[in-house]
Amino acid sequence: MKTIADKSLSALPILAHQTAEPSVFLPENLLAQASSMKGEGQAKIPACCLLDFDGELIAVAQKHFAARTSPDWPCFHTSLLILEQDGFEMGLIGGTVGAPFAVLVCEQLIACGCRHLIGYSSAGAVGRQQKPPFLMVPDRAMRDEGTSYHYLPPAPRVDVRGQLPAILSRQAKTCGLPVCRGTTWTTDAPYRETATQIEQHRTAGVRTVEMEAAALMALAQVKKVEIASLLHVTNTMATGDNDFHKGPDDINRKVIECCLAAMREAIEQNHQ
């Protein structure tokens, strides 16, 4: 009897998606139903949004930026905060950890008119070029998760698109930590990061590991929107004595400020 290992890799469900075929289940339809069930109309939300995967920015946004909960966000499973600075508005959603959930929420934001998104998360250091803590804005991701394969045909990696990543990288220098660009490794299984895998990626020049960037890059390509990832590299997979030290005490406030500045600049450039 043949095992699955004997069959073509293209027969594996994760690689067999017809990515050019439209979906039956659309975020626009879900949001319309949700708005109807809540007895509300779909109102306009900010044109840009920061997804805080770890949920660490919420309290800071409320304390230092007077962030308020939007009554117009029709999504059932998240809350959308709105931050305003000098007349410029940015959305903030916390706790969207992992590629499937991050992309699900981004799909709904895009359906509501959002065209610029930043995903902020903690990450592990794979390369030895720099010791944590530091920030990285990836320009490429290794696709070791499942979500990106529902959007793009099978390939080892995916690249970023648009101006936002470069703008974010420049603005992130105000956060008080070293900032770099490079390749990240996106995985669905952080507790299955083996020594062999880490060394293979390190040899290939990969600098970080996290859970969302590849899927967000794939979504950005398909939806023709700008999505950047800001990785707060704080650890070496819990193998070092100083792991999970985040840097300056006010790093969360500085991250919000740099994302606001990056979003404003990107949107202004697009309107020129």
Rank of each mutant, 00 (worst) to 15 (best):
A5G: 15
K7L: 14
A16Y: 08
T19P: 07
A20R: 11
S23H: 09
S23L: 10
P27W: 08
L30K: 12
L30P: 09
L31G: 09
S36T: 15
M37L: 10
M37P: 06
K38V: 06
G39Q: 13
G39I: 14
E40C: 14
E40M: 13
G41E: 07
K44A: 08
P46A: 06
A47N: 15
A47V: 15
C48Y: 09
L50E: 04
D54R: 00
V60M: 11
A61H: 14
Q62H: 12
H64L: 11
R68G: 12
S70A: 01
P71E: 04
D72Q: 04
W73H: 14
C75E: 13
F76K: 12
L80V: 10
G91M: 10
G94F: 08
G94R: 08
G95S: 06
G95E: 08
G95R: 13
V103K: 03
V103M: 03
V103T: 13
V105P: 02
E107L: 03
L109M: 04
C114L: 02
C114R: 05
R115S: 07
G119N: 01
Y120V: 05
A123E: 03
A125M: 06
Q129R: 04
K131R: 13
K131M: 10
F134C: 14
L135D: 07
L135W: 04
P138C: 08
R143S: 01
D144A: 07
E145Q: 05
G146T: 05
T147M: 11
T147R: 05
T147Y: 03
S148D: 07
S148W: 09
Y149A: 01
H150V: 08
Y151D: 07
D159W: 14
A166K: 08
L168R: 09
L168E: 10
L168M: 14
K173S: 12
C180R: 10
C180N: 09
Y191H: 06
R192L: 07
A195F: 13
I198N: 13
E199R: 12
A204K: 01
A204I: 02
G205K: 05
V206F: 00
R207K: 00
T208K: 00
V209F: 00
E210Q: 00
E210G: 00
E210W: 00
E212G: 01
A213P: 01
A215C: 02
A215Q: 06
Q221N: 08
V222Y: 09
K224I: 10
K224T: 12
A228R: 13
N235K: 07
M237G: 03
M237C: 07
M237L: 12
T239S: 04
K246R: 13
P248I: 11
P248G: 06
V255M: 10
C258P: 08
C258E: 09
C258H: 11
L260H: 03
M263I: 01
A266P: 00
I267D: 02
N270Y: 09
